[in-house]
Design a protein around this nucleic acid. Structure first.
Lengths: 220, 220
DNA sequence: GTCTATAATGAGATAGAC
DNA sequence: GTCTATCTCATTATAGAC
């Protein structure tokens, strides 16, 4: 353990201060990428918002593209965990036998509720993250990032939906899933439209409305 | 009519060549704004794509923001016309008496079909326009443009939907309308996801699938 | 790890000749 | 209407001191 390490390995653990700075930078990047998109947010803006010098952003985040990918990936794992935990909990509660299918609405709820809850009640960071994901999801340029971060979990839910709708065509289910994700993301990007019309709805109301819409859509 | 005109009025009609150049510029801008977003597409790129000098883009389009707004507005009127014509034709065919409500599915079809048909079969320009609208619709920065271009027609359809669903809450209808528009736009931005899964669908198939999804959602 | 300074590039806009 | 040339500013990235 006292031998020399290769140059590209970390020589020692980063300090607490370094970690805090790094998180401030990632938070600022998340916020600005969400507000203005990838090209609209400059490294300088991010540095200023984080209260550091521009060079530090490059130091912690690498190139601008790498920084973007890192920020997207950062909360993706947590989101996946929340979704899969919700699914596991629902299965455990249904408990009868391991292979019985969950009701469709419950599957959809496990997918939608964590996202909506976090983006609406998880503070400014999660709110920004929701809008960030909307960017990722609507621009083919980030297709690879989206696949890495979200496809594995999506696949799990697609299978679960297929089990809940045994007579439905797999292709139609996939199309509906894309529609559902779009509608879900519209809560982040177009909430002003909805809230401006139906005043002061809670996250639970919105979740229920979206669930009604999507469940009926899947069944059709 | 032979008097001198004020300086900011057009002294004479633009030449055919000028109009053709202007349209080339607008087409190129539409394509690049759709592909890379507002900040991702530079005036220089647009000029190169149109085969003109950069100064000409400013000449015809004004500032970059004005150019963007112009390109969005350009096809918006045509789209509105197609939608309202479809609605009028459906009403004329139902013909019974002028105040009877159209069936929900028919109203939604009149709204969705023109957009889907144009963006899928209207050539590269309309395809780009669809992706452009997805940008406009997901970024609050373009809220004003969106309202100017699309709200009047949306209002007409919202009323028609409310007539088709007399017992439904107006606020819920509005929320569902936002979900529907999101799902519609996802056909432009995420078609690779859907098509990659359900192979070789026609525009009519996709329209029907989206209609099934949204009609059921509204009824829920 | 953090900072200053700067390199290298590209951006949007416009003046003025033709 | 179109083009050349140029202004001014912001961009990402990095080298090197501390």
């Amino acid at each position: 353990m006292t031998e020399k390490l290769h140059k590209n390995q970390r020589q020692r653990a980063p300090s607490q201060r370094s970690l805090a700075t790094r998180d401030r930078i990632f938070d600022a990047a998340e916020q600005l990428f969400a507000d203005r998109g990838f090209e609209g947010a400059s490294i300088r803006d991010i540095a200023r918002a984080a209260g550091v010098q521009g060079a530090l952003v490059s130091h912690h985040g690498g190139s601008k593209e790498a920084l973007f990918a890192t920020v997207v990936a950062r909360r993706a794992e947590e989101l996946s965990t929340l979704r899969l935990q919700a699914l596991a909990a629902a299965k455990a509660q249904a408990q009868s036998d391991a292979e019985s299918a969950l009701p469709l609405r419950q599957v959809l709820h496990c997918f939608l509720a964590p996202f909506i809850h976090q983006t609406l009640h998880g503070g400014a960071n999660w709110s920004a993250y929701g809008r960030l994901i909307a960017h990722v999801s609507s621009n083919p340029r980030w297709q690879q990032i989206a696949q890495r971060c979200f496809d594995p979990t999506a696949r799990v839910f697609l299978e679960e939906i297929a089990k809940a709708l045994p007579e439905a065509d797999t292709q139609k289910i996939s199309a509906c899933f894309v529609f559902m994700v779009s509608a879900m993301l519209s809560l982040c990007t177009s909430r002003w439209r909805i809230v401006g019309l139906s005043q002061a709805e809670t996250a639970e109301d919105l979740t229920a409305e979206l669930l009604d819409f999507c469940e009926a859509g899947f069944r059709a």
